[in-house]
């Protein structure tokens, strides 16, 4: 079984520790939380449209991918990254090795694998294939053919 982590904070790209709140906590009081400089954990069930106009106040966003078969996180990543051009980090948490390429191309900027994948060769799964048949949120450095 995968050991799901209940994160209370994450280190951002500037090596700062950013406290995390749940989506519901943020929605309850966005002004207060934006003053505190927190990040949000978004689960697949959360309606991402509700934070569309508050993105600039959110320090970072953690999308929870622990449920292997629940693909809503990929659409959430797409909205944040491509549609709404969220400038902060989009971190895929509780991530699965076999889904890295999908997460990255959907707009996730960095990820934290579940502990059960420790020691695995991430590159095998994160770099994807020698070509892609579609444009997506992140086409960086890819050989697109469509």
């Amino acid at each position: 079984m995968d050991e799901i982590q209940n994160l209370t904070s994450l280190i951002n790209r500037d090596y700062e520790q950013i406290p995390l709140v749940s989506f519901d906590e943020w929605i309850e009081n966005p002004e207060r939380h934006s003053r505190l400089g927190v990040g949000i954990i978004i689960e697949p069930k959360d309606d991402i449209y509700l934070i569309k106009d508050q993105l600039e106040f959110i320090e970072l966003i953690a999308l929870d991918f622990n449920n292997f078969d629940d693909g809503r996180g990929y659409t959430q990543a797409y909205f944040l990254s491509k549609r709404w051009q969220y400038g902060g980090e989009i971190i895929g948490i509780n991530a699965h090795l076999d889904q890295l390429q999908f997460m990255i191309r959907s707009g996730v900027t960095t990820y934290q694998l579940l502990d059960s994948y420790q020691g695995s060769n991430e590159e095998d799964y994160s770099k994807g294939f020698s070509m892609c048949y579609q444009a997506a949120a992140n086409n960086h450095g890819l050989n697109l053919q469509y």
């Binding site: 693909g71 990929y74 990255i104 191309r105 959907s106 048949y133 579609q134 949120a137 469509y146």
Partner: peptide, 15 residues
């Protein structure tokens, strides 16, 4: 063309 587009599509492979 449509098959190619949805071949391992990052957003729609876990419907």
């Amino acid at each position: 063309l449509i098959r190619r587009w949805f071949n391992l599509h990052p957003e729609f492979s876990w419907l």
